[in-house]
C-alpha cells in the first residue's frame, strides 16, 4: 500500500473523504508558499498536489495561469517543486506532484521519478498525457515506487475508463466537468455518474476535481467520491499582497473544505 492510498483509506476509516489541495510551487514566493502549505495541512488537508509552473498550461484557467506565470517570472525551477514536496512531507501530509508532461520528459523520466521519491513524493499526476500515449512513464514511476495518477473526464468512453482505471495507481482523478481549472458555481452533474462508471470499470479509489470551490461542494462530492480535490479556490487566497492576510484566508478556506469533506455543510448567507 502506498502513502497515497493509505491516506485515502485513513480518511475513509474516519467516515469521510480525503481532502486534496493543489498549490503551484514558488507562488507568490518560496517562503510564503511553504507557509501556505503548512497552514493548509494544519487545517486538515490530507494530500497536497504541488504544481511545477509551466509556460503552456493548457488545462488551467486564469487564476492558476496567473499564479504559475508569476512564479516562472520570478525564476522558480523544478528544485523549488522538490523543496515544496519535502515541506509537505515534513508537515505530515502526503505530497504528490501535478506536472505537465514536457517538464517530466526533459528531466528524464527515470531521473524525475527518482528525484521525486528522494524528496518524499508519493505520486505524480500528469494532466496532459494519457497512459496509452506514454507507457514509458508508467514504467519509470513503477520502477521508482511512485504512484501514477491519470484523469478521466465526462467524455471518456467505457473502454478508456477501463484502460485508465487499470493504468492508474493511487487513485483515479475524475474531472467533474469538461473544462479547465477554476471556480464554478456548482459541481458538474456529470461527476457522480463518472465516479460510478469508473468504479464499475475497476477503479478502487476515485477523487473528484475541477470546479470544486466551497465547503458545500466538498460535502456534496464527499458523498460519492473517495477524495475531493481543490486548487483554484486555495490559490486565489495567495494573491493577497498582505502575507498574513493571505495565510489567514487560505487557512480559513482549507478549514471550510475540511468541514465539507467531513459532511458538515454550513448554510450560505
Amino acid at each position: 500500500m502506498s502513502a497515497l492510498t493509505a491516506a485515502i483509506d485513513a480518511a475513509k476509516a474516519q467516515g469521510r473523504a480525503a481532502l486534496i489541495g493543489y498549490l503551484p510551487s514558488g507562488f507568490p514566493n518560496a517562503a510564503t508558499s511553504h507557509r501556505a502549505l503548512r497552514a493548509i495541512i494544519e487545517a486538515g488537508v490530507d494530500i497536497v498536489e504541488i504544481g511545477p509552473p509551466y509556460t503552456d498550461p493548457v488545462l488551467d484557467g486564469p487564476v492558476i495561469q496567473q499564479a504559475t506565470a508569476a512564479a516562472l517570472a520570478s525564476g522558480v525551477t523544478m528544485a523549488d517543486t522538490y523543496a515544496a514536496v519535502s515541506v509537505v512531507r515534513d508537515a505530515g501530509a502526503v505530497p504528490v506532484v501535478m506536472s505537465y508532461y514536457n517538464l517530466m520528459l526533459q528531466r528524464g523520466l527515470d531521473t524525475f521519478a527518482r528525484e521525486l521519491v528522494d524528496a518524499g513524493a508519493a505520486g505524480v499526476i500528469a494532466p496532459d498525457v494519457t497512459p496509452d500515449a506514454a507507457p514509458e512513464w508508467v514504467e519509470a514511476a513503477d520502477a521508482a515506487g511512485l504512484d501514477h495518477v491519470y484523469l478521466v473526464a465526462p467524455s471518456t468512453t467505457a473502454e478508456r475508463l477501463a484502460l485508465t482505471a487499470q493504468a492508474s495507481s493511487g487513485f483515479v482523478y475524475a474531472a467533474s466537468l469538461m473544462g479547465v481549472t477554476g471556480e464554478r458555481a456548482s459541481v458538474g452533474e456529470a461527476a457522480e455518474r463518472l465516479v460510478a462508471d469508473v468504479r464499475a470499470a475497476g477503479a478502487e479509489r476515485v477523487c473528484v476535481g475541477l470546479g470544486v470551490s466551497t465547503g458545500e461542494h466538498a460535502a456534496q462530492v464527499a458523498r460519492y467520491a473517495d477524495g475531493v480535490i481543490v486548487g483554484t479556490a486555495l490559490v486565489k487566497c495567495l494573491f493577497d499582497e498582505d502575507e498574513d492576510a493571505a495565510i489567514a484566508a487560505i487557512t480559513e478556506k482549507a478549514r471550510e473544505l475540511r468541514r465539507g469533506v467531513e459532511g458538515h455543510v454550513e448554510a450560505h448567507a
Partner: peptide, 10 residues
C-alpha cells in the same frame, strides 16, 4: 503521437 488531456481523446 498524441499527448493530450484525456478529455480530448474522444
Amino acid at each position: 503521437g498524441r499527448y493530450v488531456p484525456e478529455a480530448l481523446v474522444a
